[in-house]
């Protein structure tokens, strides 16, 4: 549902939405074929030493409540459809962070018969975090860099061609 207001009010509404989104993005995590290394590092960023929640970031269970999809691993044939489905279920505007070397290029699994490719081959990705696995600091840096870029520009709606 899109609200249509007079241009100045509409602009103000967009600014409020961006402010809210940047201050408290809700994150969903999906493993599309990763070795688990990145997943435990994502989990580690939520725990006391790194504490991602101090940026207002909350890990969410349902794609329908999420603003940011953190995705790990190469995309396997079986999880490809599920990844697309999760992405489609997320409300606009939505952002994707690909964590780990596999998410960027397929990594060590490049060319394996059951691997479709990188996450960018299946859904549009906004931020990449390299590393095998990336350190928790790097994951935090990636998410914060994404949030800072949202402050600068109003996010354009995206959709996936299928």
């Amino acid at each position: 549902m899109e609200m249509k207001l007079d241009p100045p009010w509409q602009r103000a509404l967009e600014q409020i939405k961006t402010w809210a989104r940047v201050n408290s993005p809700w994150v969903i995590h999906y493993n599309s074929g990763s070795c688990n290394g990145c997943d435990i590092e994502i989990l580690a960023t939520l725990t006391p030493r790194y504490d991602l929640e101090r940026f207002g970031i909350k890990l969410q269970g349902s794609p329908r409540h999420a603003d940011v999809l953190i995705c790990t691993g190469p995309v396997s044939l079986q999880s490809r459809d599920r990844l697309l489905r999760i992405y489609e279920q997320m409300p606009e505007p939505k952002f994707v962070v690909a964590v780990g070397s596999c998410g960027i290029s397929g990594g060590a699994f490049q060319g394996c018969y059951n691997v479709v490719g990188s996450i960018g081959d299946v859904i549009p990705v906004d931020a990449y975090v390299p590393g095998c696995p990336p350190r928790p600091e790097a994951i935090i840096h990636g998410v914060v860099a994404l949030l800072q870029s949202l402050q600068k520009k109003d996010a354009a709606p995206q959709s996936v061609e299928e």
Binding site: N31, S32, G33, S34, G73, P74, S76, Q78, S79, R82, F109, G111, C112, Y113, N114, V115
Partner: peptide, 14 residues
């Protein structure tokens, strides 16, 4: 199961 099946055993042969 099988969502993270990547084909490692076959991959090792190459």
């Amino acid at each position: 199961l099988g969502y993270v099946h990547r084909g490692i055993e076959k991959g090792a042969e190459n």
